[in-house]
Design a protein around this nucleic acid. Structure first.
Lengths: 103, 103
DNA sequence: TTGACGCATAAACAGTTGCTTATGTAATAT
DNA sequence: ATATTACATAAGCAACTGTTTATGCGTCAA
């Protein structure tokens, strides 16, 4: 459960796309496989990484596994990046920011 | 210049720590090397990845390279993760959210 | 109960990553 | 001029990643 598991999980484009799909509704594994040009084991592997990062949960319905998003761990990323917000909202940039705060 | 270069750059704990240091002030490469239990080429390698992701800039002063943060590319991460905000601010979670929006 | 379906896991493999030591290069110091 | 400093880059390597094919296991259908 290293803190950076969430960052690593989200660094992969396919996994971000999976999260985007899951943010609209539950998907079975086959639903997801149909959306990507990739084999089922490859998708299952990405789902495992997302699962271990706590970013998705699943429930079994018949022989399907329905995956759903669990967004809470994303807050760690949000909190980290939010600290840098002044570095893009302030046109002055870092030096100007420093001068503005220490006049 | 793939969009996910920023995500990959930030997925690495050392590189996040470097950005955190640079968010306070400029650092020379040797300054950074002194902060981590790692050789200089390893730090230079991380700096190159951050540079290619547009997350740091540097200027030469004498024989030193002073690195500073350039936060703007982080906005891509911020924008992506902000879309998921309701998945952790809402105690109800995804299903409850769906029911709340579709009563 | 036999076979097909949905998915996880294992094995294997090329490509990438993160690190090291070794070397090169430009700027300063002696 | 020569040596030293600050850094980049190259070469090499073990470990990790993302993928594929092969296999196994539980669930449903015939």
């Amino acid at each position: 459960m290293p803190a950076s598991a969430v960052f690593e999980a989200v660094a992969e484009p396919t996994r971000r796309a999976v999260l985007d799909l899951l943010s609209t509704r539950e998907h079975s594994v086959n639903d997801l496989v149909a959306r990507f040009d990739m084999t089922q084991p490859a998708i299952s592997h990405h789902l495992r990484i997302l699962r271990e990062a706590g970013l998705v949960k699943n429930r079994q319905v018949g022989r399907q596994r329905l995956y759903r998003l669990h967004g809470r761990p994303l807050r760690e990323i949000y909190d980290w990046v939010a600290h840098y917000q002044r570095f893009w909202t302030d046109k002055l940039g870092a030096l100007g920011e420093h001068l503005r705060r220490n006049p």
